[in-house]
Design a protein around this nucleic acid. Structure first.
Lengths: 258, 258
DNA sequence: GGTCGGCATTGATCTGCATCAAGGCGTCGC
DNA sequence: GCGACGCCTTGATGCAGATCAATGCCGACC
């Protein structure tokens, strides 16, 4: 249900502090009581492990926050002051090298949790790709909340295990697949993730830029573009504004599977 | 302290069953009472979270098992019948594509735990690189043991978070680094891991084959060989039998950092 | 409505690593 | 001792994808 989103300390030297998150008063922050009740992603997220009264308690800790596209939720290496549950929009998680090369390690969709590992520093940076809404919890508060709720910890561990599995799939993709296979696998993967959160369709929205896709697949923007054009020529898909329509699952599956 | 070792279900179709593990009577299996007491890796492993009496209990669940080089501990997609703590030797964890392409997602060293995620199927295959000794626990028994020990679950979650961080580092390496950088980062990483388990040295043993290194770094065996030769020409290291001696941390660091 | 800037596409060329090929070297079995 | 095999190194060549460059497209802003 998720893509890479565990945050934790790494051995690397880190820079920057967490961006100011308490912008209450600017209108994009609410201590929204009862927000959990009609939360669209609750059943997909870690919160599904909680009893109603526990959910109420969590509700009181949460803060709904909106991030416009291209704004940063937190930076790689910053003190981890908060954990997040994405409820709307798409967030990119990435690591960068000093010379600017960037690897996107995952796109977080609604229902995904950022900060699963509850470590004291973020291991990746997170930026809104499209306008995003999140449920924000102070890390300290969330930590003491989890303490004494083994079933929640268990669920978070399950999520973490799933994250790692996806990370390992991505390693296989990055290390051993060619451009066609990478792009096909990416599109089918994204389609399956949309389906799981209730958006089943052969039209796959691509809110992220070609550069983002390239940085996720270990390619260049030109290769992504050419590959999409080639797949379109082969009638495997059609490129539409802000997305693709998948025409031949057979052809795409064949590429993605191997 | 670890490399990729969480095991879990993936979305892929899987084949094979777990290999027969109960070969007691052949001499490579012991229900060794008290094995934990003089365990060399206890303080590095998840077990360090346990109280003496808890350790005794765990001891009774454990089974010491030896795997000769090149034997398989478990296969990708098999029912996860057991979890493991590596105590000696090196284990490779990998995923394969139908056409035989292989990606090693991690090398497990003494202290590393295999099956952290406690899912019902293994997401990767595991094979001994060098003769390996492990502490084996039936998954069901371990699961009920962990149940009611939140501090152990917490520690396993910490390990899982660390694993994911390493996986994300590896994604950056696979997607965005060139051959020189990959090899340098690999060697420094391995050296640091040996140091943490008490083997601090500028001579880094390489028990795995060039093919294994290539499959870990997303390269070919020839490129790994040429890169080592080149680094040796540059006086950054010397290739020695079954390993390398690191001569210039500066040069290697410069490559590995970026 | 026009210009500007960001993003995507397409073409030409280059290059890092893969592929193909040939030995070298150490170890094992007989 | 020596042939065979596995593993590694080295060299020659090829190619997938990177790089360089030009153009198109569209929405924002004045």
């Amino acid at each position: 249900m998720t893509l890479a989103s565990l945050e934790m300390t790494t051995d690397h030297a880190m820079t920057f502090a967490e961006l100011p998150a308490d912008t209450c008063g600017t209108g994009d922050c609410k201590h929204a009581r009862g927000a959990c009740d009609d939360c669209k992603v609750r059943l997909f997220s870690v919160c599904a492990a909680l009893e109603p009264d526990e959910l109420d308690e969590l509700d009181r800790l949460s803060q709904v926050k909106n991030y416009p596209a291209k704004t940063m939720l937190f930076d790689q290496g910053a003190q981890a002051g908060a954990v997040f549950n994405v409820t709307e929009g798409v967030v990119r998680l990435y690591k960068s090298l000093p010379d600017g090369r960037r690897q996107i390690v995952g796109f977080a969709l609604p229902g995904d949790f950022l900060g699963l590992a509850m470590m004291d520093r973020y291991g990746v940076a997170a930026e809104a790709v499209s306008p995003a809404r999140v449920c924000r919890f102070s890390r300290a508060a969330f930590l003491s909340y989890v303490d004494g709720k083994p079933h929640l910890l268990r669920r978070m561990h399950e999520f973490a295990g799933h994250e790692l599995s996806l990370a390992q799939d991505q390693m296989l993709l990055l290390g051993r697949r060619n451009a066609d296979e990478k792009v096909a696998a990416f599109l089918l993967n994204l389609q399956a993730r949309y389906a799981r959160i209730g958006q089943k369709s052969v039209t796959v929205p691509l809110p992220m830029s070609r550069q983002d896709i390239a940085d996720y697949l270990g390619l260049t923007i030109e290769t992504v573009s050419r590959t999409l054009t080639k797949l379109a020529k082969d009638k495997a898909l059609v490129v539409v504004p802000d997305g693709v329509r998948l025409l031949s699952m057979d052809k795409l599956d064949a590429l993605a599977a191997a």
